[in-house]
Design a protein around this nucleic acid. Structure first.
Lengths: 197, 197
DNA sequence: AAGCGATCTGACCAAATGGTCAAACCAAAT
DNA sequence: ATTTGGTTTGACCATTTGGTCAGATCGCTT
């Protein structure tokens, strides 16, 4: 079998299992089964569990990073940008939520924070962008960090904790799915209300 | 040693460890160490890991349930109620976040959903409350489920994923702590903006 | 077809894990 | 002082786990 194809199957399987069981709970045998190969073959491609997890972690962040930096100062249509951003981010989260990353970041911060701190020095695109809009008098004069936090919360949480949310709203899985289909529009509207003067 | 005191120490220790490592990752020996007793004594008080986890889970939900139902139709001061609710809920989450519950609900929905479905039949207090306000013309005419989802997201997420959030905002732990001290007020303000006409 | 390097596998191992148990400990009642 | 009941412990066990290894298999070149 082609090596890179096998790797892809492993990565898909590993994402599923890490997402469900976390790093400590994930079993190499389960990942191997899910990928349809032997445990030994799994260790051939990824020397150990940690290396495999790191790869999953990096691949995932690599998908998010370009998105969270995509704020354009060149246009005054900030509402359009908010709508686009929310739509894309929530689509990403609907495929694979942040849950396992949050869990692992909480369990072993030291291992993963170096990976995040590379970016510590770079400026935060959203904060700069908001400052720009504010200086042009387009948006409300408030702390952009609060807006950023709200944006991430609104986009990330529903996919991180769908069961509790569905339970709180007395929805079954189907009803919740239907609700979530229209929810990104709500989120964008709410964020616009939060930002506008 | 008093039995009930030992139990309390176990429960405190178990919450810490389950929160950090999840159900699968938690080690009975670690919980015993954290509680300052032997592993055998731990098993004497809680027959097995599942029974212990269930107790933690139930104790935690028992603290949340009364809060999320505390919406009072008797007054027109809905802004005050939002402020109080956000403050209390975020204080609870700052002590112990929803992360491990979300993780476990995701990993093994069948085990825990019966526990939640007891309440499936009861009406959702917030939705009713919002309908009341709407009929009195006090709040905006929008889907209360979206408002409820936003409220839970805004309150729960920052305590569930503080590291990533702090990283995104280029804050260290101290700066993030200071930010989070004032953030509940921001959340209340934003929710009020979302709800008002 | 013969050789070769990459890929895969079953069998295996040392360490860790949840859980058990007989024996020890301890405070209160007799 | 002795008994009694609840509580605690170290030693122990069966099973599971991440990881290794020698050899099999596959695909490609010569």
């Amino acid at each position: 079998m082609d090596a890179s194809e096998t790797e892809q199957r492993i990565l898909r399987a590993a994402l599923t299992v890490f997402e469900r069981d976390g790093f400590l709970g994930a079993r190499m045998q389960v990942i191997a089964d899910e990928a349809g190969i032997s445990k030994a073959a799994l260790h051939y491609h990824f020397r150990n569990k940690e290396k495999l997890f790191d790869r999953i972690f990096d691949d995932y962040t690599a998908r998010i990073i370009p998105l969270v930096g995509s704020w354009d100062d060149g246009t005054d249509d900030w509402r359009g940008q908010v709508r686009r951003f929310v739509k894309e981010l929530m689509h990403l989260f609907s495929e694979s939520s942040l849950l396992f990353m949050a869990q692992e970041l909480h369990r072993d911060p030291k291992k993963l924070e170096p990976r995040m701190q590379q970016r510590r020095k770079a400026p935060n695109r959203f904060v700069d962008w908001y400052g720009h809009l504010r200086s042009k008098g387009l948006v409300r004069n408030t702390d952009p960090h609060a807006v950023l936090t709200a944006m991430q919360s609104l986009c990330a949480y529903p996919s991180m904790n769908p069961r509790m949310l569905a339970g709180a709203m007395r929805m079954n899985k189907q009803e919740y799915g239907r609700f979530m289909a229209s929810y990104p529009d709500h989120v964008a509207d709410m964020l616009i209300r939060i930002m506008e003067k």
